[in-house]
Design a protein around this nucleic acid. Structure first.
Lengths: 259, 259
DNA sequence: CGGGTGTTTGAATGGCGTCAAAGATTGTGG
DNA sequence: CCACAATCTTTGACGCCATTCAAACACCCG
């Protein structure tokens, strides 16, 4: 499924894919994306990618690995507000978003690429790159929408549906970026992190996972999640079926390009 | 505390105050705000101010009354994502925010004012009205920050601290717009609505309120909340003291103008 | 091999939801 | 003005979902 291409091509291609799934890109826009290759940077799992202090957030693209936006309360509890996957953007929102003041931490080893020159080019000539501008705005829009979805989980759903909905979201997002094969994807989240994201204790996350496994909805071994029954999972998560496939349009784009 | 001024002056003054608290306004910017008086519209308590369908969200300012952004799950549960007070804006975010796709419902009777011409003027001549543009962006920023705060409550706090923190937020916001007198403000939220906002049952909201009253932190009669001990409430809500007074800068502006 | 980290399971406690029913409050019409 | 309905608040009893504590079990790495 993953072709062996030069690393740089693959990485910028990731952004091109995501943008193209959300917006129409002209040829000169694709060319700009290719020209904006910049230096990479790696972060070890657990290290801070972007802190609360950093005033000027440089726009960066996650190339590989998982990260999260996390806030820590005075009582010491951590809350993961969002999970960031390859193809997601950090920072770079001209009109400051509150989300950009939240600490970003690497979950697994993470490679990011600076996309400051790309952003500058688009900001300075917005009329020349309308497709990219629109795509970037939509990426931000999608993240905000996911944030609201997560808020609904935390406020109005019991543990089982929370976990089911969350796994489904991760599954669909991984599909979009081509990280799902045969219904499985690698999930580098410990159950403690899942708990911190979902407002549940480690122990109870474990129990719920067991329940989902027993219901033959998912399978889970060694950090690899296998979604056995998407529709069933969506039913448990209390999602309208249309909602469950919301990001599927992007997915279609990917699969068409791959086929 | 509330002077008897012509209604129209008071209403546009509300926006001027909020913007001035966040950004420096030049004289011609204040003049623009005065010139952008537009027709008002009233909504009965419980009616929908802005639906999910409305594609083109007109920017509107809440002049009086409370509203909320609410989403309803497939299982029928309501989740109030945000409370909107006089001086808050609905819609009008050029680059679509996901929040603007959430239904806005009037809690009490609500009067809103169309601010489309103001927004258009600022969008078409951004260099001419930098203060207003910045102020509007910051208003949106503040709402997003409150959204994240609320998410922290839902995900990482038990009932008592949730309610305490929420009441404190409402208190501070009411102060900023001059709706607090002698530590009290009118809160037109039923305990059921509080529950829907905080992810708690009506019954349990009631119990927690009783507990807060017994601790002499708040008093509550006939829809009027009296905050007896701000610091104590902040302690219960597990907020760092500095955080509790976060919007106080705006408050200072108001009190200085009133004094 | 041993230590560290993550997973899994049990038992006990408690926070919070549900059910039910009795006040309190407000608004409406006679 | 009172009567009545409707809505909201308050309280008790009960049960379940989820947390906590504790300990055993797996896995990875030096």
């Amino acid at each position: 499924m993953q072709l062996e291409l030069p690393k740089a091509l693959l990485s910028i291609d990731l952004l091109t894919r995501r943008l193209a799934a959300l917006s129409r890109l002209a040829d000169h826009e694709r060319a700009l994306l290719l020209n904006c290759q910049q230096h990479f940077k790696c972060y070890m799992a657990g290290s801070e990618i972007s802190g609360t202090q950093d005033q000027l957030q440089r726009p960066r693209l996650i190339i590989s690995g998982w990260a999260c936006r996390e806030r820590i309360m005075a009582n010491g509890r951590r809350q993961l507000l969002a999970i960031l996957l390859p193809g997601d953007l950090i920072g770079g929102c001209a009109n400051q978003r509150a989300l950009d003041l939240v600490e970003v931490v690497a979950i697994s080893n993470v490679r990011v690429m600076n996309v400051a020159t790309l952003f500058r080019a688009v900001e300075e000539h917005p009329d020349e790159y309308p497709g990219i501008a629109r795509g970037i705005a939509l990426l931000s829009f999608c993240e905000e929408r996911r944030l609201l979805d997560h808020m609904m989980r935390l406020g109005s759903q019991p543990a089982l549906q929370r976990v089911a909905g969350f796994l489904l979201e991760l599954f669909q997002r991984c599909r979009v970026i081509g990280y799902v094969s045969a219904g499985s994807f690698v999930m580098p989240l410990t159950q403690e992190m899942l708990g911190n994201a979902l407002g549940l204790s480690v122990v109870h996350v474990n129990r719920v996972m067991r329940q989902l496994k027993a219901s033959h909805l998912i399978d889970l071994h060694g950090g690899i999640v296998n979604i056995l029954d998407v529709a069933g999972l969506a039913r448990v998560a209390d999602l309208p079926p249309q909602e469950a496939a919301r990001e599927l349009k992007q997915c279609d784009w990917i699969t068409a390009a791959a086929g």
